[in-house]
Simulated scan of single mutants.
Amino acid sequence: MRTTRNRDNIFQIIETSSVPLSAYDIEKLSKTSLPTVYRALDYLLRTGQIKSFSLHQCSYYYSSSEHKHFFICSKCNHFFPIYDCFIEEYEKHLQRKMKIQIQEHFILFKGLCPKCLQQQEVDKR
């Protein structure tokens, strides 16, 4: 299947975003209809150009070109990228202990971002 202008545009939006995006985010950024966005996302997922995960009954999409993890604030729902990954040693341990082969991993941390944490402290006073 050939690539289209819409697919290229949606791929570029995801590729340049430092955080995962929902289909609705992509619709707004691409000024493309939601059905077209979903068709492009389906194609990009099937061809391995992007990855996705579901959270709170919503799917989020992110680039598969670089390894990163994410933090989501449980109060404001803002995503933050995490580029550091120190799990390789743990992966090796699990592979030896469980006699498995880990092909990839994904980590999503959830908590309070600095802004919401600061607001929480102000609200306590």
Rank of each mutant, 00 (worst) to 15 (best):
Glu66Met: 08
Gln95Ala: 02
Phe86Gly: 15
Ile72His: 01
Ile10Phe: 04
Tyr60Met: 09
Glu91Trp: 09
Thr3Ile: 13
Gln57Met: 06
Ala40Phe: 10
Phe11Lys: 09
Tyr61Ile: 06
Ser74Tyr: 03
Gln120Gly: 05
Ser17Gly: 09
Leu41Asn: 07
Ser63Cys: 08
Tyr38Leu: 11
His93Thr: 08
Leu94Val: 01
Asn6Asp: 11
Lys97Gly: 01
Thr47Gln: 06
Ser33Asp: 14
Ser54Lys: 13
Lys124His: 13
Asp42Cys: 04
Cys76Pro: 05
Leu108Asn: 07
Arg2Cys: 03
His78Trp: 02
Tyr83Ala: 10
Tyr90Phe: 11
Phe11His: 10
Cys85Arg: 09
Ile82Asp: 05
Tyr61Lys: 08
Ser63Gly: 06
Leu94Ser: 07
Tyr83Gln: 10
Ser52Glu: 14
Tyr43Met: 04
Cys116Pro: 00
Phe53Asn: 12
Arg125Asp: 13
Arg96Cys: 01
Ser64Phe: 06
Cys73Ala: 08
Ser64Asp: 14
Gly111Glu: 07
Ile100Met: 05
Ala23Cys: 09
Arg125Gln: 14
Tyr61His: 07
Leu55Asp: 10
Tyr43Pro: 00
Thr4Asn: 06
Gln119Glu: 15
Thr47Leu: 04
Ala40Gly: 06
Ser52Lys: 15
Val19Ile: 15
Ile82Gln: 10
Lys51Tyr: 07
Ile102Gln: 12
Ile10Gly: 00
His105Ile: 09
Lys51Gly: 01
Cys113Thr: 11
Ile26Ser: 03
Leu21Val: 05
Tyr90Ile: 07
His67Glu: 14
His69Ser: 14
Ser64Arg: 10
Ile14Cys: 02
Ser74Thr: 15
Asp123Ile: 15
Asn6Trp: 00
Asp123Met: 14
Glu104Leu: 03
Tyr43Lys: 13
Ile72Asn: 01
Phe53Leu: 12
Thr36Leu: 07
Leu44Ser: 01
Leu108Val: 15
Phe86Ala: 11
Gln103Asp: 13
His67Asn: 12
Ile13Leu: 14
Gln95Tyr: 05
Phe109Pro: 02
Gln57Gly: 08
Tyr43Ile: 11
Phe86Glu: 12
Cys58Gln: 14
Asn6His: 07
Leu29Ala: 10
His105Leu: 12
Glu121Ala: 12
Ser64Pro: 02
Ile100Thr: 13
Leu41Gly: 06
Arg7Asp: 03
Phe80Ile: 09
Ser22Gln: 07
Leu34Arg: 10
Thr32Leu: 01
Gln95Gly: 02
Ser17Phe: 03
Thr4Trp: 09
Gln120Pro: 00
Tyr24Leu: 13
